[in-house]
C-alpha cells in the first residue's frame, strides 16, 4: 500500500466471539479509500464475520460479542452510543445470495431512500435511475421498473441489490461473496461493475474465488482460522507470498 492513499476505516485488535467460540483473533487491518480490498481464505476462516463487523451486522446475530475497535472517521463504531442505523447508511452491504425484497424493481432501489426520510418523489426517481445506471442495470430494466424484482435473473437481482445499496450513497460498500451464486457471465458483469465503482466508493469484498480477488482488488488480505495471516498488494500477495499458509492456499494445496 502506498502512503498517499488515505485510510478510511481500520480495525484495531478486533476479536469476535459467538458465545464461547472465538471467531476472530486480534485483527488489525486498514482499508484504503477508493480502493478494492479483497478478503480471502478458506470457509469458516472468519472473513465474512470480519466483514459483518464493519457495519455491525453481527449485532443481529444473538450471542455475538466483540473486543477491540473498528475506527471509522476517528470514532470507534463498536461503541454502544453509535447509531447503527446511520452507520449502515454510510457503510452499505451486498450479500452472498441476491436478496431483493418481494417488491417492484423501483421500490427495491427506493427503499433505502424512503427509510432514510427522503420523500420528494422526483429526488427519489432521479436517485433510482442514477443507482440503476451505476449498477449497469438501467438499460435492462428501464421499461419494467414497476414489475416484480423477483422476476429478474440471478445476476440482474444481484446488480439490483448493488443499486439498492448505492442509492443511499454509502462511502464504503461491503460485498460478501457477491458473485458466488451467479453464473460466469453474470460474475464477469459484477466484476466489471466493481472496477467501475471503485472510482467513487471504497469496496471491501469477501471472495472464495482467488482469480476474482486477483482481477478486481488492489489489496488482498488472507484470513485463516480467525486470524489475519498476511495482507499486501494483490500483485505481491499472489506472486510472492511471505507466509507459508498463504502460499499453500493460493496454490490450491488446501481450502
Amino acid at each position: 500500500m502506498t502512503n498517499e492513499i488515505e485510510t478510511i476505516i481500520h480495525t484495531q485488535d478486533l476479536s469476535l466471539f459467538y458465545g464461547d467460540f472465538q471467531a476472530l483473533h486480534d485483527i488489525s487491518l486498514p482499508f484504503a479509500q477508493r480502493q478494492v480490498t479483497a478478503l480471502i481464505g478458506p470457509s469458516g476462516c472468519g472473513k465474512s464475520s470480519f466483514l459483518r463487523s464493519l457495519n455491525r451486522m453481527n449485532d443481529l446475530t444473538s450471542g455475538t460479542r466483540s473486543e477491540g475497535a473498528v475506527i471509522f472517521e476517528g470514532t470507534n463504531i463498536l461503541e454502544k452510543k453509535i447509531d447503527v442505523v446511520s452507520l449502515r447508511r454510510r457503510i452499505g452491504m451486498v450479500f452472498q445470495k441476491p436478496n431483493p425484497f418481494p417488491k417492484s424493481i423501483y421500490d427495491n432501489v427506493a427503499y433505502g431512500l424512503v427509510v432514510n426520510g427522503i420523500k420528494n418523489r422526483s429526488i427519489v426517481a432521479a436517485r433510482v435511475e442514477k443507482s440503476l445506471k451505476q449498477a449497469a442495470l438501467w438499460e435492462e430494466v428501464k421499461d419494467r421498473l414497476h414489475k416484480p424484482a423477483l422476476g429478474l435473473s440471478g445476476g440482474q437481482q444481484q446488480r439490483l441489490c448493488i443499486a439498492r445499496a448505492l442509492a443511499v450513497e454509502p462511502e464504503i460498500l461491503l460485498m460478501d461473496e457477491p458473485a458466488s451464486a451467479l453464473d460466469p457471465i453474470a460474475t464477469q458483469k459484477i466484476e466489471e461493475l466493481i472496477l467501475e465503482l471503485k472510482e467513487r466508493y471504497t469496496i471491501i469484498i469477501v471472495t472464495h474465488n482467488m482469480q476474482q480477488a486477483a482481477r478486481v482488488s488492489n489489496t488482498t488480505a488472507f484470513f485463516y482460522m480467525g486470524r489475519l495471516v498476511e495482507v499486501g498488494s494483490t500483485n505481491a500477495l499472489f506472486t510472492k507470498p511471505v507466509k507459508k499458509e498463504t502460499e499453500d492456499y493460493i496454490t490450491g494445496r488446501f481450502g
Binding site: 442505523v85 447508511r89 452499505g92 450479500f95 436478496n99 431483493p100 433505502g112 427509510v115
Partner: peptide, 8 residues
C-alpha cells in the same frame, strides 16, 4: 438483513 443494512 438487507433492510437493516440499508439503514432501516
Amino acid at each position: 438483513e438487507a433492510s437493516m443494512a440499508l439503514g432501516a
